[in-house]
Amino acid sequence: MPIKIPADLPAFEVLTREGVMVMAEENAARQDIRPLRIGLLNLMPKKIQTENQFARLIGATPLQIELSLIRMSEHQARNTAAEHMENFYRSFAEVKASGEKFDGFIITGAPIEHMDFEDVTYWDELREVMDWTRTHVHMTFGVCWGGMAMAWHFHGVPKHILTDKAFGCFRHRNLAPANPYLRGFSDDCVMPVSRWTEMRQEDIDRAGLTTLLTSDVTGPCLVEDPENRAIYIINHLEYDSTTLKDEYDRDVAAGTAIKVPANYYPDDDPALPPTNRWRSHAHLLYGNWINQIYQTTPFDMARIGAQPGEPGQEDGRPDGGGRNIG
């Protein structure tokens, strides 16, 4: 089954060219199944690029996915056309007021990692979003700064400023091969990293969370938070082949001090085209996440977020028992 997105969203044409199955809303409505509803809270400045990256991954499974694009209510995008935001995005305030629920929800990163969380202009609303996911989302995926924000908000896990930017492609060890999110993963995998902050293992352990992937160079990467039905990844499996190159070229052009991204270009030569060595594991991780949602989310979306003993959870299982929604 394909991903369901508006036919005039730029990602529709991009994914069609790449061979990803996409379906316009009017065609999806003819199929007598309930699609998985995935919300994307896009905090990145390059909205369209980010839409393409995540739609590509969550649209690669056999299930029909309905992707909803969401923005912060008061924060205005400065790098994306207002018309695009008006046509394809809804504010969190609108989503919350509607009372709707989601099978899955992704909170992206944001280029504000040097700031204290509490100094971010939309931090109060983001805290509201994160609390809202506990009652209106079945499973949440926090990415980079978004994952760090969730770990801080729910568990007090701090982020620490690095003296040098972690920048390049680094090997990560698979610490939990039997974990369903890592089904099919190799013993190690290469992943793009681009950040000035880190989470430390001792803080993660103190919070009672579980690290699934880690790097000997750049530290913990993928962390599971069962209490909030969430996982946090602080690196970037969703990146395109040239994303690190674009960041490097931008800084070089601006005269900003920047190192060549490690282990990214052949022979570390930026004159050569980079090689993508993470694409397969990106599809595995997001496909496994979608599969976990599919296996456990309630067919009746009103039951999403209900706790054991509440109406809609008569069998006592926090996931509503799971069922086939196709």
Score class of each variant (00 low, 15 high):
Lys4Leu: 15
Leu9Arg: 02
Val14His: 08
Leu15Arg: 05
Leu15Pro: 01
Gly19Asp: 09
Val22Ala: 07
Met23Gln: 14
Glu25Gly: 09
Glu26Trp: 12
Glu26Tyr: 12
Ala29Ile: 07
Gln31Cys: 10
Asp32Thr: 13
Ile33Pro: 07
Arg34Trp: 04
Arg37Ala: 10
Ile48Tyr: 03
Gln49Asn: 12
Thr50Val: 15
Asn52Asp: 15
Gln53Thr: 12
Ala55Lys: 00
Arg56Val: 08
Ala60Met: 05
Thr61Leu: 08
Pro62Tyr: 12
Ile65Arg: 04
Glu66Val: 03
Leu69Cys: 10
Ser73Cys: 09
Ser73Ile: 04
Ala77Glu: 11
Ala82Ser: 12
Glu83Trp: 11
His84Lys: 09
His84Pro: 01
Glu86Ser: 14
Asn87Lys: 15
Asn87Gly: 08
Arg90Pro: 04
Ala93Met: 08
Ala93Gly: 10
Ala93His: 11
Gly99Tyr: 08
Gly99Asn: 10
Glu100Val: 15
Lys101Phe: 08
Asp103Cys: 09
Phe105Gln: 06
Ile106Ser: 03
Ile107Lys: 04
Phe117Val: 02
Thr121Ala: 14
Thr121Phe: 09
Tyr122Arg: 06
Trp123Phe: 11
Leu126Ile: 12
Arg127Ala: 03
Glu128Ala: 12
Met130Pro: 00
Trp132Ile: 06
Thr133Trp: 07
His136Ile: 06
Met139Arg: 12
Met139Ile: 00
Met139Leu: 07
Met139Ala: 10
Val143Ser: 02
Gly147Trp: 01
Gly147Gln: 04
Met148Gly: 07
Met148Glu: 13
Ala151Cys: 04
Trp152Lys: 14
Gly156Ile: 05
Pro158Met: 12
His160Tyr: 13
Ile161Ala: 15
Gly168Gln: 05
Gly168Ala: 09
His172Cys: 08
Leu175Asn: 10
Leu182Glu: 05
Arg183Tyr: 07
Arg183Ala: 14
Ser186Asp: 15
Asp187Gln: 13
Cys189Arg: 02
Pro192His: 01
Ser194Cys: 10
Arg195Asn: 08
Trp196Ala: 03
Met199Ser: 02
Gln201Val: 02
Asp203Ile: 05
Asp205Val: 06
Ala207Trp: 03
Leu209Ser: 00
Leu209Lys: 02
Thr211Asp: 03
Leu212Ala: 07
Pro220Ile: 00
Asp225Trp: 05
Ile231Leu: 13
His236Lys: 05
Glu238Asp: 10
Thr242Val: 13
Thr243Ile: 01
Thr243Cys: 07
Leu244Cys: 09
Tyr248Asp: 05
Arg250Phe: 11
Asp251Met: 10
Ala254Ser: 14
Gly255Cys: 13
Ala257Lys: 14
Ala257Val: 13
Ile258Trp: 02
Lys259Thr: 10
Pro261Phe: 04
Asp267Tyr: 08
Asp268Glu: 14
Asp269Ile: 11
Pro270Ser: 08
Ala271Cys: 06
Leu272Phe: 05
Leu272Gly: 05
Pro273Asp: 14
Pro273Asn: 03
Pro274Thr: 07
Arg277Thr: 11
Trp278Met: 06
Arg279Ala: 13
Leu285Ala: 04
Tyr286Thr: 08
Asn288Tyr: 01
Asn291Arg: 12
Ile293Trp: 01
Tyr294Ile: 01
Gln295Gly: 03
Thr296Pro: 00
Thr296Gln: 14
Pro298Lys: 06
Phe299Gly: 09
Asp300Val: 02
Ala302Tyr: 06
Arg303Ser: 03
Arg303Trp: 04
Ile304Tyr: 04
Gln307Ile: 07
Pro308Val: 04
Gly312Asp: 01
Glu314Arg: 09
Gly320Val: 08
Gly321Val: 10
Arg323Ile: 12
Ile325Asn: 11
